[in-house]
Structure formats: structure tokens, C-alpha cells
């Protein structure tokens, strides 16, 4: 397999790192949400359980979307090598 051009590799790596960082942040939020919902439920506020479940579902979908993005970036085919010299728009 041919190596990807340097700038493309760097851009993809940056995008993957950003997605990974975002997943970690979402996961920390979801952890906090789970403990807060449990505390609230044990404290007798049962209404919080439904809201907690909905928000947790949204956070999970966001994590899953980012995971799909990481897969797509990692498996994307390498771009066509641009021909050296002037392009048709550079007359």
C-alpha cells in the first residue's frame, strides 16, 4: 500500500485525534449524568430518570457517530496524486 501524502495524513490524524478527544469529553459527561440521575432517583426525584435516559441516549448517539467518523477517516482511500506541473486552471 502506498503511503498517503503527508498533508493528508496529518489532516486525518488531526481529525481522528479531535474525534477521540470529543468522545472522551462526551463519555465524562455521560458518567456524571449517570451518577447524578442515580443520586436524584435515590433522593426520591423519579422524574429525573426519564430526562437522564433521553440525554444519555443522545450522548451515546454522538459517541457512535464519532466512532463511525473515525472508521471512515481511517479507511478512506488515498486521494489521487495530483500531476506535477500546472493545472488547467493555472494557465
Amino acid at each position: 500500500m502506498k503511503a498517503l501524502p503527508g498533508p493528508v495524513r496529518a489532516r486525518r490524524r488531526t481529525a481522528i485525534d479531535a474525534a477521540l478527544a470529543l468522545v472522551v469529553i462526551l463519555l465524562m459527561t455521560q458518567m456524571w449524568l449517570l451518577t447524578a440521575t442515580l443520586e436524584s432517583y435515590l433522593g426520591g426525584h423519579r422524574d429525573a430518570a426519564l430526562a437522564g435516559m433521553i440525554v444519555s441516549g443522545i450522548l451515546f448517539l454522538a459517541c457512535f457517530g464519532l466512532y463511525q467518523l473515525v472508521i471512515r477517516l481511517d479507511r478512506a482511500p488515498e486521494p489521487e496524486a495530483e500531476p506535477h506541473g500546472l493545472g488547467p486552471w493555472q494557465i
Binding site: 477521540l20 468522545v23 472522551v24 462526551l26 463519555l27 455521560q30 458518567m31 449524568l33 449517570l34 442515580l38 435516559m53 444519555s56 441516549g57 450522548l59 451515546f60 459517541c63 457512535f64 464519532l66 466512532y67
Partner: peptide
């Protein structure tokens, strides 16, 4: 991480 997120949703 995504599987962990699914676990917390299950919780």
C-alpha cells in the same frame, strides 16, 4: 469508549 457509552446508557 463507544461501548462504555452504551453501558452507561444501559444504566
Amino acid at each position: 469508549l463507544t461501548l462504555t457509552s452504551a453501558g452507561m446508557l444501559a444504566g
